[in-house]
Nucleic acid binder design. Structure first.
Length: 205
DNA sequence: GGTAGGATGGGCT
DNA sequence: GCCCATCCTACCC
């Protein structure tokens, strides 16, 4: 080991609340290339979707404040984790100022740290590309559950960071996946050419 | 390479 | 009672 590698930071600065206090579209775009950290696992965010408040019928927040959607109307920079299809959980990060709904769904990660742990949590994944290339897969790989719903992601065990080495990425924009309402809006963002994007999109290079 | 169908349970009308 | 911001398996090119 060299002195240089020892002094290299393992992770960049944590993203603070003003980063999230913006429109979901801006936050979704800017989250690409950032690093999600939970416990011993981390991964680079390579695919996101923006969900708006009023007018976006695909968004949970479209039907107003309920027990489930309350966190979406709360302060930005918190996790919104919901249970879907009786089996899976999806991670969102709350955007917009407090009182206005909006969030970003994290759809795919390129694993960085704790890959062995992720493999144990995702025994059906045959390749590294399959560990976290979907919203339900990445929560399994990183052990993110509804226990993290409402958690402050600017501090604590679940956080998002600047990458150690910031590299320019080309961003592709498409319609969102797996929805029927408001399906034509260009609200999905992904790193063009990245092999860890969700199923059926890797060819979009 | 591709896709049809089933698993499975909470949220909301 | 219906609807899901999904994933996996089986099966078919």
């Amino acid at each position: 080991m060299t002195l240089a590698s020892e002094s290299l930071p393992s992770i960049g600065a944590v993203l603070l609340r003003p980063f999230y206090r913006r429109s979901p579209v801006e936050v979704a775009r800017d989250l690409l290339g950032k690093v999600l950290v939970h416990g011993k696992t981390s991964g680079t965010i390579v695919e996101t979707e923006a969900y708006l408040g009023e007018g976006d019928l695909a968004a949970h927040a479209a039907r107003g404040i309920t027990g489930r959607t309350r966190v979406l109307f709360g302060p930005p920079g918190h996790a919104y984790v919901y249970f879907i299809y009786g089996m899976y959980e999806c991670l969102n990060l709350v955007a917009e100022p407090e009182g206005k709904a909006g969030c970003v769904l994290i759809r795919a990660l390129e694993p960085v740290a704790g890959v062995d742990l992720m493999r144990r949590r995702r025994p059906t994944a045959r390749k590294a590309e399959d560990l976290a290339n979907g919203p339900g897969k990445l929560t399994l790989a990183m052990a993110i559950t509804r226990n993290q719903n409402g958690a402050d992601v600017t501090r604590g065990s679940l956080t998002v960071h600047e990458p150690v080495v910031r590299q320019p990425v080309e961003i592709a924009v498409t319609r969102r996946i797996g929805i029927t309402q408001s399906a034509d809006l260009p609200l999905r963002f992904l790193i063009r050419g990245n092999r860890y994007v969700s199923r059926g999109t890797a060819q979009l290079t």
